[in-house]
Amino acid sequence: MRSNIQRKRSGSVGVLFAFFCAAGAGLLWAQQSGWQPHDAGLGLRGASSAEKGWVQLESPTQIALQPRRAQTVDLEFLIQDGLHINAHQPRSPYLIPTTLTLSAPAGVRVLGVEYPQAKDYHFAFSPKDALSVYTGSLHILVHLRAQPGAFAMPASLRYQACDNHMCNPPKTLTFTLHGVAK
């Protein structure tokens, strides 16, 4: 009985010993080979990030309106932390403006789209080259009037995001506003 317990103990100790040796050897191999616990081929440019985009719609896509009255819908977008997107009217014609496009269905009239005031930034070494950008939470106001009934209005936000030193390619966030005017 006692020898059985001793055998079990020595077996456990052996397993423990083997575990530590294997762990040490594994870590040593990881260090030497430069292996990292993630796919270096993905990162920020990875499919998930790129497909998801850098701006998300925060507002609900369901809206309720009073019929035949001019009303304002506040669409809130969230710009990924650390990134900025160009203002609707950037300082250079080459920069891609942030633009909301709405395809008004029959019975809905878009009276106007109002963009917020942008913030000015400049590069540390180049104060003259200011950039007019949005960061964080972006509220775009849509003024519209709808006839009674339900409607679906496809919309898209085209933007181009950069961080402090790098720019991502232009992207378009598409969504549909589902409204009821009653």
């Binding site: 913030k119 930034y121 540390a124 104060p127 961080d163 030193h165």
Partner: peptide, 28 residues
């Protein structure tokens, strides 16, 4: 990396290193 500074802020107080890591591998 080169820092981007809000208008009116002192560039010296902006931490360039707080930007995303600049290594090509960090960028995928």
């Amino acid at each position: 990396p080169v820092a981007l500074v809000p208008e009116g802020a002192n560039p010296d107080t902006v931490d360039a290193a707080s930007a995303d890591p600049n290594s090509p591998q960090a960028q995928g």
